[in-house]
Simulated assay, not measured.
Amino acid sequence: MKSTRTGLAAAAAVLALTVSACGSDDGGGGDAGSGGDGGGDSIRIGIKFDQPGLGLKQGEEYTGMDVDIATYVAGELGYSEDQIEWVQAPSAQRENLIATDQVRLIFATYSITDERKEQVSFAGPYFIAGQDLLVRSDDDSITGPDSLDGKSLCSVTGSTSAQNVQEEVPGVNLQEFGTYSECVAALQSGAIDALTTDDTILAGYAAQPQYEGQLKVVGNTFSEERYGVGLKKGDTELCQQVTDAINQMFEDGSWQAAVDDNLGQAGYQPGAGNPPTPDECA
């Protein structure tokens, strides 16, 4: 019996080695972490799961402008839609997801900054957003930060967006909630007067069916956020491929369709500089 057990163990070890050799060698499953720009089994892409109009997961369905742009870019890299594995990419985890090869690309309202470029590379930008205000559709009294004196303004706890406005307009009554969804509900009910964050995020909420015709983006941005595609630092070949795909999307009208389909219901129009000129991999 001892020799039989030894033989079985040896056979199992050989089988394990065979399976390992046939599988991924990127340490994370699939082909997303390797170079595979087309021809791989799958590609893992990070998005937000909780931003209507941008990156939203409902059951097994993924929707939003970031999702549509990511799907297009993946297609240009040689991956079909069913080869994309969507990975949740919360803001605080994005750099780690890239560095540890848990994702190949990130499309998640990922603003390009010098600080972030120390850890990751960016392709793009594919969109220029800006901080703005969301108000009720029948409220014409709020036209920008200068008109917020004495008004109640909502943003999420610890948001730099809210702090920026409070510094500029000391007379604003800042109310911080845990999520943007709570702020939007309070705005609709009249409990607050305005909500502030990136205009794309605001438009995404305003475009939701339950708020149709009730909310509007003021359209007076007072910052610039250059959304880029995050990828492994130093991967210049992939960076250029992604940038080329973004340019193609601008040229064939698919980018504008993605914006209109996801944010247009809120009457949102992209601000100055859109579509941008990708320059991160020039």
Score class of each variant (00 low, 15 high):
230 G>Y: 11
142 I>S: 06
197 T>H: 02
233 K>M: 01
120 V>G: 02
152 S>A: 09
121 S>H: 04
274 N>F: 10
131 Q>R: 11
33 G>F: 12
270 P>M: 06
154 C>Q: 09
254 S>Y: 02
167 E>W: 06
188 Q>F: 05
61 E>P: 07
93 Q>V: 05
23 G>C: 07
98 I>P: 08
246 I>V: 12
152 S>Q: 08
83 Q>C: 12
141 S>G: 07
85 E>P: 09
123 A>H: 09
144 G>S: 06
157 T>Q: 10
232 K>R: 08
20 S>H: 14
222 F>W: 07
228 G>W: 08
112 I>N: 01
137 S>V: 14
55 G>K: 03
68 D>V: 08
68 D>H: 01
14 V>G: 08
43 I>N: 10
31 D>Y: 12
20 S>R: 15
267 G>K: 11
93 Q>K: 05
70 A>F: 10
15 L>M: 11
73 V>E: 04
213 G>D: 10
278 P>E: 00
56 L>G: 04
35 G>W: 07
121 S>A: 03
94 R>G: 08
236 T>N: 12
22 C>M: 15
153 L>Y: 05
119 Q>T: 07
149 D>Q: 11
79 Y>I: 13
214 Q>G: 14
44 R>I: 10
218 V>T: 13
1 M>Q: 12
6 T>I: 14
104 R>T: 09
210 Q>C: 04
40 G>R: 03
278 P>Y: 00
203 A>G: 08
38 G>S: 12
54 L>Q: 03
161 S>D: 08
109 T>R: 00
203 A>S: 03
72 Y>T: 02
80 S>F: 06
261 D>F: 05
151 K>Q: 15
50 D>L: 01
251 E>F: 03
180 Y>T: 08
206 A>V: 09
90 P>W: 05
163 Q>V: 09
255 W>G: 02
203 A>V: 09
54 L>K: 00
276 P>T: 12
234 G>I: 08
197 T>S: 04
220 N>F: 05
52 P>E: 00
149 D>Y: 07
118 E>K: 01
140 D>E: 15
37 D>P: 06
248 Q>L: 02
116 R>W: 06
46 G>V: 14
7 G>W: 11
155 S>K: 03
203 A>N: 02
29 G>D: 15
142 I>M: 01
25 D>N: 09
180 Y>I: 13
246 I>A: 00
144 G>Y: 12
